[in-house]
Design a protein around this nucleic acid. Structure first.
Lengths: 359, 359
DNA sequence: TTGTACGCGTTATCAA
DNA sequence: TTGATAACGCGTACAA
């Protein structure tokens, strides 16, 4: 058991309180409070006295904890992430969303508390959410369709935002049109004359293994974004095209998975990768095999992130992660203002690059 | 002015409190509290009654805000980042440190609140720190030597940790041996026979512009890690070698800066880049010019991160970012336990790769 | 313009 | 084993 209170006999560890400042200044505690909340109605003279007293005592302003308790607001927004930080932030798209969200919250004077949920460590996230005073929880990166956190957080009356998941009435969604966007990508390849098109999917389920997937697998998928993109592919190309999922959302994983698509005969002339990171892996795998993109193989991605080491420009769906993050931030604000915020769709658009070529 | 309190006439917006649960269960409020704090001394029967009452009322457990106020601890550690999230997380090394720190804090049941300080927006970070209840503040990525936040946070009695910066007695440091590690890199190149060695430095100061730097610039640098690595270079190679700083810690920026080193005659036979990301830029710039690494140009980096798209292995200083993050987490714990934590040095080691070659 | 008094929701101490 | 009471530090009607 931790020794209670017994703060080691060090110098004035205890911080002064507003009451002491008020005493020192010879005013009442409420007057002192007014000086800090900046409301009207304190004479400049007394305000000055209070500030001097604060300075003398080393008072740094009202205790945020007490202030928050009083206001019923903590100023903190929880940001749920699927996987460890190292895994989640590996994807530049994820980073851009967080960047935009962080920027928006910054302007609101709110902070971002990270709630990573590493595989198998769900209890950590649950404990964190139970012990932290959150004003809202944002599922920033499309995770599984269901989450045990939803019930828990809803019980606390904390508003939730998602980007497609978890699917629950209590979670307000900011989606994108995964199916429409994917259809546009596939149509672009069809127009270029490609018929032998393959798909490299993001993981469909937690713990997914690299390997072929069937339409049944897709329909039963846990991740709605991966599912919808795959369904749109099937819708356009039929159920018999080569379809593989990568075990991880990473360049290395994708390069490995790409082998299952490229080392067969006949080799597809185009690959639809469900994310730019996966597309990068496909491109690397192609280069490894002496295939040039786009002459020998067309590749499309999804997200529209910067791949600074890649010469050329990926044909992809531009998702505007930063804008999406800011959009989420705006929804948080409105939710906290008591508005009734409906589900929304963030716009995307097809961006033609240098990785697709007529067949 | 926001309409005060006037919560829109919606259903039971208010969450039940412990007092209501106690009333409902027919016990005192303190007994009900004991059920949740899990201490000894509540009969199974009454505990059950309390739980039933809680269930019936939809009570989700003690309010973290009130609990924190009582305990004087928020369970939140602030993590200061230089620049926007998008900028900071672009560097895989930064991500790995945060990953390790997050992991360590997770095990402590604590959360990470991001405190990004975008250039020119220092007031946002200040406001955030003033309004949030932090148990500690970690300057996770070596920023400028001085920070206005230090005084402010110190005044609140919040312990601070840094990784070399800000330089202040009140900030406990976990450093690395930048000078020794850089010296080892340079010595490795010297042993390989290189004499014409150039350096590509990280930004030496906020707002740095890409261009040559002098020893005087280096000595006056704001970022201690960039400074120390540069000083070690000068110490080994003398003051007359080509030295350039990149305006940003990014592959693109580095590739641009590398032009100043590669497009001169005689061209250096080796480049010491102050970070792996910069080294990646140098390698790309070299490839652009038809130079092969390491035959035509040796390149060394610093950090030891994964560059998944890079075939081959960088010769670099392995910094073990995850381990360093966990080390920081451990220091946080000890600080919060009231221990007197001294400055520490995290070990690094030279890792030989495929980007250096005898001359 | 300033002061009084109460409550925000808990938890720790002590007495019963 | 349980209950009364007093903080934790602050904001805000209301009265003066």
């Amino acid at each position: 058991m931790a020794r209670t209170g017994q703060s080691t006999t060090r110098s004035p560890q205890r911080r002064p309180t507003l009451r002491e400042v008020a005493d020192q200044a010879g005013v009442s505690i409420s007057t002192a409070s007014l000086v800090y909340s900046g409301k009207q109605g304190v004479s400049p003279a007394t305000a000055e006295r209070v500030r001097e007293a604060a300075e003398a005592l080393g008072y740094a302003g009202p205790d945020p904890l007490a202030s928050s308790l009083r206001h019923g607001r903590s100023g903190v927004v929880g940001v749920h992430l699927e996987g460890t930080l190292g895994y989640a932030f590996q994807d530049p798209y994820a980073v851009s969303v967080l960047d935009g969200l962080g920027q928006a919250l910054d302007e609101l004077g709110m902070g971002m508390l990270l709630v990573p949920e590493a595989p198998g460590e769900a209890s950590h996230a649950a404990r964190l959410v139970a012990g932290q005073a959150l004003d809202a929880l944002v599922f920033a990166l499309c995770g599984p369709t269901t989450s045990a956190l939803v019930d828990q957080v809803a019980a606390r009356g904390i508003p939730m935002l998602g980007t497609g998941a978890p699917a629950d009435d209590r979670v307000v969604q900011l989606r994108i049109d995964d199916r429409g966007a994917t259809a546009a990508l596939v149509d672009h390849l069809l127009e270029l004359g490609h018929r032998d098109v393959a798909m490299l999917a993001m993981p469909l389920d937690p713990g997914a293994r690299t390997g072929p997937v069937t339409v049944a697998d897709i329909e039963a998928a846990t991740y709605p974004d991966a599912r919808d993109r795959a369904l749109a592919f099937v819708d356009r190309m039929g159920p018999d095209r080569p379809m593989v999922q990568s075990a991880s959302l990473s360049i290395d994983g994708a390069a490995e998975a790409a082998a299952l698509l490229l080392d067969v005969s006949p080799r597809p002339t185009a690959v639809v990768a469900q994310s730019d990171l996966l597309a990068a892996g496909v491109i690397r795998a192609a280069a490894h095999r002496g295939l040039s993109v786009p002459q020998d193989l067309s590749v499309v991605g999804f997200d529209g992130v910067e791949l600074p080491w890649f010469e050329g420009r990926l044909t992809t769906v531009e998702q505007d992660g930063r804008g999406k993050g800011r959009h989420l931030g705006d929804m948080v604000r409105r939710l906290l203002d008591g508005e009734d915020v409906p589900d929304q769709v963030h716009p995307t658009h097809l961006r033609l690059g240098t990785t697709t070529y007529p067949r």
